[in-house]
Nucleic acid binder design. Sequence first.
DNA 1: CCCTAATCATTCGGCTATCTAAGTATCATT
DNA 2: AATGATACTTAGATAGCCGAATGATTAGGG
Lengths: 146, 146
Amino acid sequence: MAQQSRREVAEGVLEITLLVTRLVTPEVRRLRPKQLSLSHIRALGFLDANPDADLSAVADYVGLALPSMSTLVDGLVRRGLVARLAAPHDRRRLRLRLTRAGKGALRTALAAAQAVLETRFADLPPGERALVHRAMTRLRPFLMRG
Amino acid sequence: MAQQSRREVAEGVLEITLLVTRLVTPEVRRLRPKQLSLSHIRALGFLDANPDADLSAVADYVGLALPSMSTLVDGLVRRGLVARLAAPHDRRRLRLRLTRAGKGALRTALAAAQAVLETRFADLPPGERALVHRAMTRLRPFLMRG
DNA sequence: CCCTAATCATTCGGCTATCTAAGTATCATT
DNA sequence: AATGATACTTAGATAGCCGAATGATTAGGG
């Protein structure tokens, strides 16, 4: 079995990322009626997993500057997808959480993005499916921390 | 070994894609002196693999509307990275190709993006490296065609 | 040959997303 | 209570993208 260099692995991962992005982005754009961008979806996803997070945490996770996230959240609040409450003992901080509508919107958006991929993977043999799944699982921790 | 559903695989791939994008985008933004966005890089990459392509082909590959690609290419031409020639027997069409500087800029940009990932993968054991590489190789054809 | 379609690309106007810099409110420390 | 740090917001500017309209060229019937 050939030993892969870090460079080759990085190259492969980057290429796949670009391909997936290309497939998924137009689909997400089609959700424009609901005005959800990829950043919106990522913010919603983070809040789904981390209720009552503050603004900085979301900004950090999504990879946006604070001001950008501030206006982004503003939009989500205006659409009724997120509740912006004050933190209990520090009134500078926010306490952000999804509303019921927010959870619904997240589900819908993710489903749309995933549907594109699922269609693509229709002919992926079960064995390879498992292989890919395993690879993604291994990759995840290396991409998250830091 | 658990049999993975298509849904799970799609979910995993989407998640990893989002994580990688989050890591790579800021790095690419740091190339601002050269003003290269991800779309720019993808356009350069396509032209590297397909010299003398016309505008529609690049737009299609990158996933942008024609007007957007028109201005994008305009920028690349202004920076001396791409040559915009007329096609021989159809003067509506363009014949786009990288200049020497364009090839250099592409190499530089890709290297920057990959470097971020390589750093992340420093502690990925060789066995898992091979696993990931294999998974990416299997995935590629399913994401490219169509 | 022409006239009409169709095709390829550009320009225009507008909107979204993002950044930096500056400002406001609150908390922490001495 | 004064100073500095922290969390967020507002303001101003720019890039990226789209749809609609336009220009230029070619293709296909009469």
